[in-house]
């Protein structure tokens, strides 16, 4: 969440949401967080991660780390923009593959 106004009128594209579970044994520590941020940053859409009511940008290392994604925890990936579906699929794939750990 940001204090800037939502620019809903200028946002073209759509929204995609998917629920995922942290599968890798150490959870989302620095290395998986970096991989996640790098993956999300490749898309033009705004990508967020939500856990327990806290929402952070999936393009922010510090944001992703503050979520404290311990093994087994559930998260919601949400993207909004021209490539929303691809972004969510790419990030969800990392969770699915346990961040290659």
């Amino acid at each position: 969440m940001s204090t800037t106004e939502r620019k809903s009128s200028t946002t073209i594209g759509r929204e995609a949401i998917r629920e995922v579970v942290v599968k890798n044994p150490l959870g989302i520590h620095a290395r998986p967080a970096a991989l996640l941020v790098r993956t999300a940053s490749a898309f033009r859409s705004e990508v967020t991660l939500e856990k327990g009511g806290q929402i952070v940008s999936a393009k922010s290392i510090m944001g992703v780390l503050t979520l404290a994604g311990h093994p087994g925890s559930k998260m919601r990936i949400r993207a909004e923009g021209p490539d929303a579906e691809k972004a969510v699929a790419a990030v969800a794939d990392l969770f699915e593959k346990g961040f290659y750990e």
């Binding site: 969440m1 940001s2 204090t3 800037t4 940053s41 806290q54 929402i55 952070v56 940008s57 393009k59 922010s60 944001g63 503050t66």
Partner: peptide
Amino acid sequence: CLRVQGTTVDLQGIGILLEGPPG
């Protein structure tokens, strides 16, 4: 309580929240 995306610094006693798009 609210969590916002932004960096906060204390500039000689003035608390400043820097916000803006990623990057």
